[in-house]
Design a protein around this nucleic acid. Sequence first.
DNA 1: CGCATTTGACCCGCGC
DNA 2: GCGCGGGTCAAATGCG
Length: 327
Amino acid sequence: MLLMDSARRAGCSPSPVCLDLSVGLSPSSPGSSGPETTADTDDRLDRPAAGCRVASSLSDEQAKTLEAKLTQVSEENRRLTEMIAYLYASQVARQSSSSPDTTSRKRSRDSLEPPSNSSDGNANAKAEPGDHAAVESALSDEGTCRRIKVTRVCTRIDPADATLTVKDGYQWRKYGQKVTRDNPSPRAYFRCAYAPSCPVKKKVQRSAEDSSLLVATYEGEHNHPSPTRAGELPSSASATASGPVPCSISINSSGPTITLDLTKNGGGGGVRVLDAAEAPDLKKLCQEIASPDFRTALVEQMARSLTSDSKFTHALAAAILQQLPEY
DNA sequence: CGCATTTGACCCGCGC
DNA sequence: GCGCGGGTCAAATGCG
């Protein structure tokens, strides 16, 4: 959260690709219902975090140390973002050179949706390289295209649980269910209960590879507050119950957002690119990001940043201790 | 009785 | 033009 906040303050969104690094908090964080499940929403950035309360109890010296560290982390985050942007640009260049025809576009009959910019896994599974241009087009036509945010959220569930429900705090109305070609488990279609005033839809389907993984794809943004406080984030409630997921990939009209959720109990805290095979237009990029070298470098750099400074770790430990009740 | 869910039918875009 | 497959509709059904 500090990373994201610092990146935002540093104005660190120069590229169509945003590297969103979120370090999971303890599920028992006071006042937090557990937004461990990743989603590229901005809401959580504007909420007071546990870390802010910790920082407020620090001495001036500790605060300065943390601030200096924050600046350093911001810089590193900016470099990482640039790295992602470079990889993305390279991929775009390769794709555009191999598929000059970008005129044919699949347009949804649903007027609420933009030109095909779907992150739907199965739809992309059969997409040709030209489809990548659809994403690219949406990126370059920001001024003319209506921006529809598409977010993919993954939640680990009990494999025995047959219900395709993701408790995210919002009320949904199911309007359809289909068995898709590439996945034996059905896909459920939901509309926000506040429709038609709220245009948000979501699709929920088990992962074809891992039946314990529930993939929810949100299209659009709610134009109303969540009925429940716990639902400030998509799937936040279920994430608390089911545990965070290591990674999610989101694609919106402002560019793909790759969210790496380095939580401590989501697959060992490793970085994993999920459903890369389902997004062939980004497959190459995702493969590069998911490569062992990149992952190792990323994790090492983050770990080094956070642990190399003994003052930082001591200050953090002291701050945490101050928050613990005395026995 | 009203509302939510289920499920088969239908629509539409795309590839061949 | 036809078939396929994803997405949506709407009547039927279930439930409180």
